[in-house]
Every structure is written in C-alpha cells, then in structure tokens.
C-alpha cells in the first residue's frame, strides 16, 4: 500500500511575542509516514507533543519547518505545511476530519444538527443527514432525548460521543482522532472502536492518540512514541 501522508523533518516552535519573545520547542525532527488504510497510533506522556503533531497535520497549527506530503483522493500531491488556506479548506471539506479531545461546537445548535451539518456540507439533504446521524447516535447509545438538545449542557461522555459521531459521519478518507475513548464506559468504548474499525475496513486511514491500552490494542496497526517532541520507537501491535 502507498503512503497517504509522508512527514519529513517536521519542526514546531511556538514564539510567544507577548511573553518577552519566549520560545517553546514543541516538535523536533519528526519524520514518519502513514500508509493508506492503516491505523497509526501516537503514544506518549501528556505534553509530549501528540496533539500538537495532530493539529499541525490538520493545519490548526502552522509548522515551523518541514514537509507533510499528502496524496489526496484524486491522486494530487499537496504539502499540507505550505498549501494555501483554500487548498486546506478543500481537503478538510472533502476528505480529512479531525476529532479533538474536547468537543468544540457552535453554540445553540442541537446535537443532531451538529453532526448532520458535516453531511450537509458534503451535499446531502438535511433529512438524509439527520437519518444517518440518528443511526450513528443509536450505535453510540446516546440517549434519544438528548438528540435535540444543545451539546454544551451534556456530560463529558455524551459530548465525546457527539464529537466522534461528527468526525465519522462523513466517512472521511483520512481521520485524526484525539482520545476518542476517554471518559466512555467499556460498552460504548467498544462501540466506538467497532465503528472506527469499520471505517478502516472501508478504506479510511486513521491517526489515533490514546492513552488507553484496550483501545490501542484493539485498534492500532502501528504506533509511534513521542517524548519531548521527538519520535522514539515504533511499536507494532499485531
């Protein structure tokens, strides 16, 4: 299988101009690649740079130097580190989604529409999108009375399920998930893992951040360990 994403010498440094030009080195010499259809896990202690790396790939963070060569669905090659904003927006709209650790949603939108809007943006009708969302919510056992409520009032676990549903609903080609199973009970955890594995079977490549041994064991094909912003060893879970 070819690589979907090839990261070469990635560096990320934060320059804080308002704190006396303080600099924070976040990522160093990070090079690896993601094969099409694999689940690559990022492990490491809190603060080791896992989420920073993921946000760099999603372009929420700008990289300081290095390249991130991405091969899109049409076979075009794009360096995510230097692509124009419109190119990144197009990739985000059509094939790459990001599921952050904490749900960040536009206020005053019901849970079902938070998720359905991802499908509507890809050209599906709102009714169709809501139907697909309902199916997804059921599998994640999100109580039906919450579907029309605002996620900002949900518990951590409920928010997490909305978050995952939102990232998965459009069946992206490339999925970035940050701690998808934290704050979930074991049954829901397995439901989430099953759904992610189904996506993988359908061809989705996934980068996964998790601290949870169970999740890692069930899901990851390969894992990379980060320590102080540097890659350590790669572990292969068979």
């Amino acid at each position: 299988m070819g690589s979907l994403l090839e990261i070469v010498d990635l560096e990320k440094r934060f320059e804080l101009h308002i704190l006396n030009e303080k600099e924070i080195d976040a990522l160093h010499d990070v090079s690896f690649d993601v094969k099409e259809g694999e689940i690559l896990a990022l492990t490491g202690k809190s603060g080791s740079g896992k989420s920073t790396l993921m946000k760099c790939i999603y372009r929420t963070y700008l990289t300081t130097s290095g390249r991130m060569i991405y091969r899109d669905g049409q076979g075009a090659v794009i360096d995510l580190a230097s692509a124009t904003e419109h190119e990144v927006l197009r990739i985000r709209r059509t094939e790459m989604t990001y599921c952050s650790q904490f749900l960040q949603v536009i206020p005053r939108v019901p849970a079902i529409d938070v998720v359905a809007s991802g499908l509507v943006a890809r050209g599906r009708s709102i009714e169709e999108a809501r139907r697909a969302t309902s199916v997804c919510f059921e599998r994640l056992s999100l109580p039906a009375e919450l579907w029309d409520a605002y996620p900002s009032v949900f518990s951590g676990g409920e928010q997490q399920r909305v978050n995952i549903a939102r990232a998965m609903i459009s069946r992206p080609r490339f999925l970035l998930v940050d701690e998808p199973t934290a704050s979930l009970d074991i049954t829901t955890k397995d439901a989430v893992i099953d759904m992610l594995l189904e996506l993988k079977l359908a061809g989705t490549s996934i980068i996964l951040i998790s601290h949870d041994e169970h999740t890692l064991r069930r899901m990851s094909d390969r894992s990379l360990h980060l320590e102080n912003g540097r890659l350590k060893e790669a572990v292969v879970y068979a």
Partner: peptide
C-alpha cells in the same frame, strides 16, 4: 490564515495579544 489557526496558533504579536 484559517480561523482555527489564527485563534489557536497566532503568529504575530498583535494577534497573540
């Protein structure tokens, strides 16, 4: 830049402020 990038990783001192 992208709005999420401007808000989460502002580059210019003024934006950071």
């Amino acid at each position: 830049g992208l709005t999420d990038q401007i808000l989460q990783d502002p580059q210019h001192g003024y934006t950071q402020l």
